[in-house]
């Protein structure tokens, strides 16, 4: 069973500030969904290799050639805040 503390812990990991109502809703819904996931335990998978992707490829190399990069002005136009060609972020080091 997923508890209120679990939901708060996971929300913190995911950097989601949930409202009290959202937490209540997620406790109920996530429990429903996690209960449904339990059907996977009907399967014995102890000798089964996991599949993370289906293409039989490992390292994909390309030549280290210089290519045009994105236009800086266009990229920065999407920034919530920018200053002198830099992304502006909240202060992270205390004075």
């Amino acid at each position: 069973m997923i508890t209120r503390e679990d939901v708060e812990h996971v929300a913190e990991l995911a950097r989601l500030e949930l409202t009290a109502a959202e937490k209540e809703q997620f406790i109920a819904q996530l429990n429903d969904i996690l209960t449904y996931f339990e059907k996977l335990n009907e399967l014995d998978t102890s000798d089964v290799e996991p599949t993370s992707q289906v293409i039989p490829m490992s390292n994909v190399f390309r030549d280290d050639a210089v290519q045009p990069s994105l236009d800086r002005t266009k990229v920065l136009q999407n920034a919530p805040e920018e200053s002198h060609f830099f992304f502006k972020v909240p202060r992270i080091i205390e004075e």
């Binding site: 997923i2 996971v10 929300a11 995911a14 950097r15 989601l16 500030e17 996530l30 996690l34």
Partner: peptide
């Protein structure tokens, strides 16, 4: 925390919560 809470809708938050869990 606030950007993501205000920016994402309920189904996306639900799946982020599921996946993070």
């Amino acid at each position: 925390m606030h950007t993501r809470d205000e920016g994402f809708g309920a189904e996306v938050k639900r799946r982020i919560m599921l996946g993070t869990y």
